[in-house]
């Protein structure tokens, strides 16, 4: 049981990790992340990299949808912009990831701001359609701007390195992706401690009174679109470095929906939500795959029979979350924590 928190200064009250226990757990978590790749199988390492990339992208989408309340179906398209830009910069300008990823992020942010312009006029479903249209346009560009994007065949990344180190293994990618994911999440958390994060939430909760209090709606909506797209662009760049090939089909409209589902399942507007959601959405299909593999010895053609069932179960899990925990996995986690703090007393 935890009784009170003995903070006596404002900085310690507004710190991200406020208690010793939290710091210890965080240390254990970081240590686990560091040792994990050396004990895991190549397959789980591969998945871990995917989760890392998904965490960055979902965190970006959460800034826009969860914090600022502007719905977007353009996130997949933004990841595509980042992926193509990073590959082009790496192969044609000989840049390493340390330069190509932020530049790809910046270009994507610029695209995001342009796509976000309608948000000043339209809200909700209308904005969803407007951003979806943007993602269709981006897809069209990916297919038809052949000198740069390589058309339907896509482009291969020849020169994947960072600071001269060749990123040719999942292990090396892991140590690039995971620290970046941590920085991305910390960035979002910090944002929430300052005027900008507060302004985002104000725009989401009650835009009229936000305006009365001096929050410039135009500025903050576009800032949110830009920042969210920057995250998407960086995630797309990492995705390209990970798979070493980008085609127009790498980021279909499904990707945007995938990330929306991730932040809804995880818990919109929380810092933890997109992380949990990204893990859930990436790993659950894999877990279901493993489960069907277990049945194979008993039922030889289980793979064929059960693969459609897998999709249905995955869908049912998402619906289940919407019904029983609309605030997402982050809320479940919060409740569990609260329970453990108060144990043995009832909450």
């Amino acid at each position: 049981m935890r009784i009170g928190d003995a903070v006596s200064t404002y900085p310690s009250d507004e710190a991200i990790f406020r208690t010793q226990t939290q710091k210890v757990w965080m240390g254990i978590f970081i240590a686990t992340l560091l040792t994990f790749p050396f004990v895991s199988s190549p397959y789980t390492l591969f998945l871990a990299c995917l989760v890392g990339i998904a965490v960055i992208s979902a965190t970006g989408l959460n800034i826009l949808v969860g914090l600022t309340g502007q719905i977007s179906l353009g996130h997949g398209g933004f990841m595509g912009v980042g992926a193509y830009t990073a590959v082009w910069l790496a192969d044609n300008m000989g840049m390493g990831l340390a330069l190509s990823m932020p530049l790809a992020g910046l270009l994507t942010a610029a695209v995001g701001v342009v796509v976000g312009l309608p948000s000043l006029r339209v809200k909700g479903l209308y904005l969803a359609i407007a951003t979806m249209a943007a993602s269709v346009i981006l897809h069209f560009i990916f297919v038809h701007w052949e000198p740069v994007t390589g058309g339907n065949a896509g482009i291969n990344l020849q020169n994947a390195n960072i600071f001269g180190i060749n990123l040719n293994s999942d292990l090396r990618m892991y140590f690039v992706v995971v620290p970046l994911a941590i920085i991305a999440v910390l960035g979002e958390r910090n944002l929430l401690r300052t005027r900008i994060g507060r302004a985002f939430i104000a725009v989401r909760d009650r835009d009229i009174s936000a305006e009365v209090l001096g929050v410039d709606l135009l500025r903050y909506k576009l800032m949110s679109f830009g920042l969210s797209s920057f995250y998407a662009g960086c995630a797309g760049a990492l995705w390209a470095y990970f798979f070493k090939v980008v085609t127009p089909e790498s980021f279909p409209l499904d990707t945007s929906i995938f990330y929306l589902a991730a932040i809804i399942v995880g818990g919109m507007g929380t810092v933890l939500g997109p992380i949990l959601g990204a893990i859930f959405m990436t790993l659950v299909p894999e877990i279901l795959k493993i489960l069907t593999a277990v049945v194979v010895p008993i039922l030889p053609n289980a793979q064929v029979l059960l693969s459609p069932v897998r999709v249905v179960v995955f869908g049912a899990l998402i619906v289940g979350f919407l019904l029983y925990e609309p605030h997402g996995m982050a809320e479940m986690w919060r409740r569990t924590r609260r329970y453990s703090h108060l144990w043995p007393f009832k909450t």
């Binding site: 507060r198 939430i201 104000a202 989401r204 909760d205 009650r206 009229i208 009174s209 936000a210």
Partner: peptide
């Protein structure tokens, strides 16, 4: 009518 930001 109260116009606070309910999520904060």
């Amino acid at each position: 009518n109260i116009a606070l930001f309910r999520g904060m």
